[in-house]
Design a binder for these strands. Structure first.
Length: 422
DNA sequence: CACCGTCAAGTCGCA
DNA sequence: TGCGACTTGACGGTG
């Protein structure tokens, strides 16, 4: 079993994708942005390698305006070598990448131009994965589309249009149950008619189950597994938790450890790939991987602790002490306890005292080295925060800039700068 | 530098 | 009829 995350990466500034808007599109600008995006992707892949994350969804935004008529730049040619090199890095490290076009790509639309644009978009996604040299197990996930007042007709339109697609697209396309129109039973029906692997999405299933829901989610999941053939790679599923008590399909801030473990223990076939859909992305992917690691080493939790430490300290001194105590026992690493304490810190109310305490801890890195002006600025900011005239984020920015200036890697890697809220 | 409206695109549901 | 949700941050103009 491998666990992965989608598109965005948290905890580094070097992994951000850039984009370009129609009104200032130019070949030069486009190529510069694609260049920077490929560098960011390489950063992300290297991070995934270092953290043993084997499943990753590449953002459709990697090539901006890729399928828009304005963009006639043959980027796959211009950056051929770089794409191949990147693909090799992915392949050699056993990473499985995928893509997922957004809600605008609808091949069962009743509008001919929407279908045509959607096919163009699928061509783009296929071309990107092809350019990396990925095999057939690198998939492109698609929803079925709209209902247009007649579900049966719309399902048939999907099947007919699917059959007309280029085989290079069909090799990669897989279909997913969505949260309001097409439930897992509908998607399995389409799968049987057109021989397409099905991605089972747990949250969508919960929001939109078949009417006579005759199986439980684990049984549906197994049924979906039968639609995967050998060269499609391992069965993939999407797992997420709801942000607002199943009111809509919004994803939670993080994957709750105990809930995930419960789900995992009920899985019959553990030889599948799980794509997490969650706001904190790679953080939850690492968490879930460690939670199910049979051979968990204390050093993995210690590495996690290094990242979370100042964030936890800024929110809860009590949890900070509890985690320190937990990690003292090096012979018996307990990921569930560890992450439950992290979660408690993510959920607790911000208090000024804890924030100030964490800031003073971090300031310790600069006390000696910093210039007189920096010391003055710091004291002024801190005083301002205490008196409500300065925001927390202005202090955070200040400390981040100092960390960068003095190359304090430990702080630069701290999630304190990336997951804190005001 | 902080703030905030806008961004290429589709469909559905609700006021 | 028109707007928000889905999801999503980053761009770029303004003050």
């Amino acid at each position: 079993m491998s666990i992965g995350y989608a598109c965005i990466h948290m905890g580094s500034t070097k992994t951000k994708l850039s984009t370009i808007y129609l009104k200032n599109f130019s070949e030069e600008k486009f190529l510069a942005i694609l260049d920077s995006n490929l560098k960011a992707l390489e950063e992300i892949i290297n991070y995934n390698i270092a953290n043993n994350i084997k499943v990753f969804r590449i953002s459709s935004d990697i090539v901006p305006l890729a399928s828009h008529p304005i963009n006639t730049v043959p980027w796959w040619d211009i950056y051929r070598d770089r794409l191949i090199t990147l693909g090799k890095l992915i392949k050699m490290n056993g990473i499985r990448v995928s893509m997922h076009p957004g809600q605008y790509t609808v091949i069962n639309s009743i509008h001919e131009n929407v279908i045509l644009k959607s096919i163009e978009d699928l061509r783009y996604h296929t071309r990107f994965l092809d350019s990396l040299g990925c095999d057939k197990s690198s998939k492109i996930v698609l929803h079925i589309g709209g209902i247009y007042g007649d579900k049966e007709l719309s399902i048939q339109r999907f099947i007919d249009n699917y059959k007309k697609l280029d085989s290079s697209i069909k090799n990669r396309l897989i279909i997913e149950n969505d949260d309001k129109s097409y439930n897992v039973e509908d998607v399995l029906y389409i799968s049987e008619q057109a021989n397409i692997p099905v991605v089972f999405d747990t949250l969508h299933h919960r929001l939109n189950p078949p009417q006579d829901n005759k199986y439980n989610q684990y049984e549906w999941l197994e049924l979906c597994g039968r639609s995967w053939h050998k060269d499609d790679g391992k069965q993939k599923i999407h797992y997420s938790q709801s942000a607002n008590n199943y009111k809509n399909g919004a994803h939670s801030k993080y994957i709750k450890a105990s809930t995930f473990l419960d789900f995992y223990s009920n899985l019959k076939n553990k030889d599948i790939d799980i794509m997490l859909e969650v706001k904190d992305k790679n953080l939850s992917a690492i968490k879930c991987s460690l939670l199910i690691d049979d051979d968990l080493k204390i050093k993995y939790l210690e590495r996690e602790w290094a990242r979370y430490k100042y964030y936890v300290l800024s929110n809860s001194t009590k949890n900070y002490q509890a985690i320190r105590a937990l990690l003292k026992d090096k012979s018996n690493p307990d990921a569930l306890k560890f992450y439950s304490l992290i979660e408690a810190s993510l959920d607790c109310e911000i208090t000024k005292n804890a924030q100030i305490n964490a800031i003073e801890h971090m300031w310790g890195y600069f006390k000696k080295e910093s210039t007189e002006n920096e010391k003055k600025s710091f004291l002024k900011l801190l005083q301002g925060y205490k008196e409500n005239t300065k925001t927390l984020s202005s202090i955070r920015n200040f400390i981040y800039r100092l960390s960068y200036k003095y190359s304090i890697e430990y702080l630069l890697d701290s999630l304190y700068f990336y997951i804190s809220e005001d």
